[in-house]
Nucleic acid binder design. Structure first.
Length: 300
DNA sequence: AAATCGGGGTG
DNA sequence: CACCCAGATTT
């Protein structure tokens, strides 16, 4: 759409209030941006920062990442969560070496074809690392759009087709400013969602859009039951058991299968669940079994 | 469209 | 203790 007050207000607000994050630095490489985006998938900025610093210090480019032992990749990943992301990030590095001569590709389509790079991350890297005017939509942006334009308290758990259409409809026209204005819109709305238009108690008194926010103008109605995501319990789940197994493999190194299964400090997990979870880790390539030993992958 | 996949910080 | 966090992949 044509530039409107909503666009100018958000971008101006960003220029005054943006956090100083290392992957936003002028001298951050596209690889640094890509690593940050993968680490930030479902993981807060504060927990990513130290892991990102160490990763880039050890593996500053796709080539070195592709050559590293997977066991080291998973150890540096530490407890960031969803360790399959770490494995896919290494697979993406290998694909970049093979298909793109070791240089992070700059188009949304090429990025989307890499392992672990979905709709959001492909658009984010193309925009933040290369300045491409792609429509970026993350959980922060979905929430801002839901409130400001749709008048809803929360966007709901799943990214719907209607929400995708809305994001495109309110995106500034890239033809106008060679895309400079359009690409600035993405990071500005995202930061507004992260700092002001937050999930719980939003700081509307600090918001540059408060006067024109549809949700606020409607009286800030509370979220419906449908909009409130039902958080699945954590204790007793396979995810907890898988996480405990991975933590043990990181800390203890190669371990006899029977000792690994018996040593888990999770009394609630019966043997069937422990075996099922270990088998799933082996199947995912997050662990390897060699004889009676189980270990992180890639170490001979 | 829904399920699965970690882990920790926070109101 | 429920809820949230710069999602991707599979079914």
């Amino acid at each position: 759409m044509q530039p409107e007050p909503v666009h100018h207000r958000v971008i101006s607000w960003y220029q005054d209030h943006a956090r100083d994050l290392p992957w936003r630095s002028e001298d951050c490489t596209p690889w640094g941006v890509l690593v940050s985006e993968v680490m930030l998938q479902q993981t807060p900025v504060a927990r990513v920062l130290p892991r990102w610093e160490e990763w880039l210090r050890r593996w500053p480019d796709p080539q070195s990442t592709a050559e590293a032992p997977s066991a080291e990749i998973l150890t540096v990943w530490d407890r960031l969560g969803y360790p399959r992301r770490a494995l896919r990030l290494q697979q993406a590095a290998a694909a970049i070496v093979e298909r793109h001569n070791g240089e992070v590709p700059s188009t949304r389509e090429e990025l989307r074809a890499l392992p672990g790079i979905g709709e959001y991350t492909a658009a984010a890297v193309a925009c933040f690392a290369f300045g491409a005017p792609e429509v970026v939509v993350d959980t922060n942006i979905r929430r801002v759009h839901a409130r400001v334009f749709a008048g809803d308290a929360l966007p709901g758990k799943t990214y719907t087709a209607a929400q995708r259409r809305l994001a495109h409809r309110v995106f500034p026209d890239p033809e106008l400013d060679d895309g400079q204005f359009a690409s600035a819109w993405n990071i500005a709305v995202m930061e507004l969602g992260a700092l002001v238009c937050t999930a719980r108690p939003p700081k509307c008194e600090q918001c540059p859009l408060a006067e024109l926010c549809a949700w606020r103008l409607a009286g800030s109605p509370p979220p419906s039951e449908q909009q409130r995501g039902q958080a699945q319990a954590w204790a007793g789940t396979d995810r907890q058991v898988r996480g405990a197994l991975m933590a043990a493999l990181r800390q203890e190194g190669p371990t006899e299968r029977e000792d690994l299964l018996a040593g888990l400090a999770l009394p609630s997990a019966d043997l069937d669940q422990r075996v099922r979870c270990l088998e799933s880790l082996l199947s995912d390539g997050l662990a390897e079994q060699r004889g009676v030993q189980v270990a992180l992958p890639g170490v001979l």
